[in-house]
Amino acid sequence: MPDAHGFEYTVHGSQVHITHHGRSAVVLRGNRAAEFVARVEREDPQELMARLTGNYKRGNERTARNHPRNQRRRGI
């Protein structure tokens, strides 16, 4: 996975607001917010936030699309 960066989070009561380069990415509530706060202490926070926001698939999409195994999916 490429380096994730630019993520920040703030805790507002029982909610966690995650932003990416200053723009709102996701708001976690309830159990997901509590789990995030617990995991952020022991894991890489940037990678964790990238995975939670879905912003982690970068760089290999074109390579995978051109792989022979995936040619039939493109209708070739």
Rank of each mutant, 00 (worst) to 15 (best):
K57M: 08
G6D: 09
Y56D: 14
R29N: 13
G59R: 03
L28A: 06
A4T: 00
H17L: 12
A25T: 02
E47Y: 14
P2G: 02
G75N: 09
F36C: 02
E41H: 14
N55F: 03
M49L: 12
L52T: 05
R62M: 10
N31H: 14
R65V: 01
V16C: 11
Y9Q: 03
N60M: 05
H21L: 05
R69N: 05
G6A: 10
E61T: 03
T53H: 13
Q71H: 10
V37G: 00
A50V: 00
N55E: 06
N60L: 08
N66G: 03
P68R: 04
G22M: 06
R29C: 07
H12N: 15
N70Q: 08
I18G: 08
K57S: 12
H12G: 01
N70M: 06
A50P: 00
T10S: 11
H17A: 07
G59E: 10
V16D: 08
T63Y: 10
Y9V: 00
T53M: 12
H17Q: 14
T10R: 14
P2S: 10
N70I: 00
S24W: 08
N70D: 06
Y9H: 14
A25M: 02
G6F: 09
R23M: 05
Q71I: 05
P45Y: 07
L48N: 07
F36K: 03
H21K: 06
Q15D: 15
R29L: 08
P68A: 05
R65K: 14
F36M: 02
I76V: 12
A64F: 08
R29T: 12
A25G: 03
A38L: 11
H12P: 00
G6I: 02
R29V: 06
G75E: 14
G22E: 12
E47W: 14
H5E: 15
N60F: 11
E43F: 10
S24Q: 11
V26E: 13
G30M: 06
N60G: 11
T53W: 13
P45M: 05
Q15I: 00
V40C: 15
G6K: 07
S24M: 08
H21V: 00
R74T: 00
E8R: 09
R74A: 14
V40A: 15
